[in-house]
Amino acid sequence: MATTTSPVLLGPRRGAGMSLALQALRRSRPLVGFLPHSSPLSTSASPPDAHELLRIDRILTNPAAGGGGSLPSQSQQHPRAATDLHQLLRRAAGLTAAESASLLRRLPGAQPHPRLGRLLQELAGLGLPRGEVKAALASDQEGLLSMDPGEPSRLLDLLRDLRCREAVRDRILAHGALRAAVAARRRVELLHARGLSRHDALRVLAAEPRTMLYSPEDVERKLEFLVETMGFEVGWLVQYPEFLGVNLDRWIIPRHNVVEHLKSVGGLGDPVEMKHYVRLTRRRFYNMFVKPYPECERIFGGLVRERDEMARRRHPTGLWKLFKPAKHERTQEDVQNMKSLVGSLK
């Protein structure tokens, strides 16, 4: 009795034959000699083509190659992306080919990220002088190139709308607006690392631009003193940003020492708030916390009363008499003449 091949077994045999063919391809054995020609994989199809097996093997080993060459590989994209970055660096900062190549080699990562291209396009479109962008790259390359697209524009708008004294503005923008934007971004990231949101950090900088005049180390020291020593939360800076603009050694620490002494002797009735440290003038703080307690005067930084008396005595005693106009004595005749003159005018 003749036996016929069941159609149900054709599917598994076809998959087994394909698997054996691919294994033979990876072991570099002759495909034609390995495939069984006597028992075909199907009742109607011819033996699989060797080129088709090679194409399937390329798809399995590299899925990106299955599109027939429509998607270029990363090795093909990299030269074009690098060329675009060279052109953007020349447009934005005026860098030569050698300078841009040296800069790109120092960047972390094997290939440039698309974010860098968008950032350079934004810098080229801001209309800044090329020398200013080049100086910012030379001063803080990591701080500038680590920005996200859109950050330079927002920071430059913040610097353009600063509300502060003209002397403070001139010091902030002394080295160019872009370098000031990089410095502002450093302070924003520092405040964000301490717990503030980036939006609140920008609000703090806008309200207290003097923060950008202090180095990041000084700002970090103030934040550490605020949290670790004084016991306040970083969120208080949104309401009292002046804390970051005053001098820590000459303004905050003397007041904190006075308050700590009064706490130890029970001289405080109400709790001391943040406004007492930053909003009160030196005179008002002295009258409120130091003057009733003479022992606090030396803690506060010297005898304030003696300083005031020395400030009032600016001239030697008796010098004012030299500037007093001479007094002329009036005789009886002068009085009569004046009376007669006034009487004639009536």
Rank of each mutant, 00 (worst) to 15 (best):
150 G>L: 12
186 R>L: 07
24 A>G: 09
173 L>I: 09
316 P>T: 06
85 L>E: 03
171 R>V: 00
335 V>E: 05
344 S>K: 15
185 R>V: 00
269 G>T: 15
227 V>T: 09
168 V>N: 09
236 W>N: 06
236 W>P: 00
206 A>M: 14
114 P>D: 14
221 R>T: 13
216 P>D: 10
292 P>W: 00
206 A>R: 15
43 T>N: 06
128 L>H: 07
183 A>W: 10
252 I>S: 04
91 R>M: 07
70 S>I: 12
288 M>N: 09
3 T>E: 08
314 R>L: 13
112 P>T: 14
186 R>T: 11
70 S>A: 15
68 G>V: 04
84 D>A: 05
145 L>G: 05
304 V>D: 00
236 W>G: 05
65 A>H: 05
116 L>Y: 12
142 E>D: 10
198 R>N: 05
85 L>S: 11
240 Y>Q: 04
240 Y>M: 06
64 A>Y: 06
125 G>S: 14
29 R>N: 12
220 E>A: 15
244 L>G: 05
55 R>G: 01
314 R>P: 00
69 G>V: 01
261 H>K: 04
187 R>M: 11
24 A>Y: 00
138 A>N: 05
337 N>A: 11
83 T>M: 09
292 P>G: 10
53 L>T: 02
225 F>E: 02
142 E>G: 09
269 G>W: 09
126 L>I: 07
